[in-house]
């Protein structure tokens, strides 16, 4: 009896639902349409994020800074060149590395320090997201990040020059300009100025201007192809050095980003790979390298 009763109530409920649902079907779509219209009226400004996965494109920086309170531990290696022969085990004997820590003080401002084995160089940098790409009202087509770094070599010298801290210092300035064209494609331009306080050779200028270009194309959600090229605009550097070229992939796994790459530059900081690259990519002067990015959230954001 009880069963029959529940069956009856269920049937009546179903009947009720059906009578309601029939005319409601198209009205529901209208309700959503209304909602769409209402929200479209003043589409809010939305920041475009994740232009790149890492703070590095390959050798150089991207417009990206980590979110506030995030610490990045960056381990980079360059092994090669391949054309150094079996005596050097094709470059493995000459591997160079750089260790770095980067921390985002705010969503826009990042600071970082690093130490390279190449020329025993210590570097520090500041990175500020001046303009962020956005959609909606007052959309901004590009992101612009300003980058400044200084690098000090701690090598012992045996020449007759008194290598003061000042003379050991090099400055790099970049305006990184990028646009995320789609979720897959992002391109970046990097006008650069490198200033060396001391240059050793005649005719060598203290300032080196360069323009870089690069980008990434995502093949899957967690895997992308990257390329990066820096063209120096200074005659002396053009004659005595090579432009830096790098190709690589980003592989993202949760809190890590692995970047595997091929480049003709052994240095991993701007003044080294832009102004001091000597190997020719197309004559076997290729280094295999990787960057490992590990992110730690030191300070969690408060949700309100």
């Amino acid at each position: 009896m009880k069963k029959l009763l529940t069956l009856l109530t269920r049937a009546s409920l179903l009947g009720l639902v059906l009578t309601w649902a029939a005319p409601a079907a198209h009205a529901q779509a209208d309700l959503l349409g209304q909602l769409d219209q209402e929200t479209k009226k003043d589409a809010p400004k939305e920041l475009v994020d994740a232009t790149f996965k890492s703070t590095r494109l390959i050798n150089g920086h991207t417009v990206q800074t980590p979110g506030e309170g995030t610490l990045v531990f960056l381990i980079s290696h360059r092994i090669g060149p391949f054309n150094s022969g079996s005596y050097e085990f094709f470059g493995l004997d000459q591997a160079k590395m750089r260790l770095a820590l980067e921390y985002a003080l705010t969503d826009r401002l990042e600071i970082g320090v690093g130490r390279s084995t190449l020329d025993k160089t210590v570097d520090g940098f500041l990175k500020y997201r001046a303009i962020r790409q956005s959609t909606g009202a007052h959309a901004m087509p590009v992101s612009v990040t300003l980058f400044g770094s200084s690098a000090i070599t701690t090598l012992h010298y045996n020449d007759n020059i008194n290598h003061t801290i000042g003379l050991r210092t090099t400055y790099s300035y970049q305006a990184l300009i990028a646009r995320k064209f789609s979720s897959d494609l992002s391109l970046q331009l990097m006008p650069t100025l490198i200033h060396r306080n001391l240059v050793m050779n005649e005719g060598q200028k203290n300032d080196v201007y360069a323009i870089g270009a690069g980008g990434r194309y995502k093949l899957t959600k967690r895997f992308s192809l990257n390329a990066e090229y820096y063209c120096v605009l200074d005659k002396y550097t053009q004659d005595h050095y090579q432009n830096s070229l790098a190709v690589g992939v980003d592989i993202e796994t949760g809190g890590h980003i692995f970047q595997l790459l091929l480049t003709n530059s052994i240095g991993m900081i701007e003044k080294q790979f832009i102004a001091e690259t000597t190997d020719n990519f197309f004559k076997g002067g290729i280094y295999f390298g990787f960057n490992i990015n590990r992110n730690f959230t030191l300070k969690q954001r408060r949700l309100h």
Binding site: L31, P66, G67, G255, N295
Partner: peptide, 18 residues
């Protein structure tokens, strides 16, 4: 008795930015 709601997915805020 009809209801509709629409959520802009991009606006979700997390404690960890990553």
């Amino acid at each position: 008795g009809q209801i509709a709601f629409s959520v802009p997915v991009h606006e979700f805020q997390f404690k960890r930015t990553l």
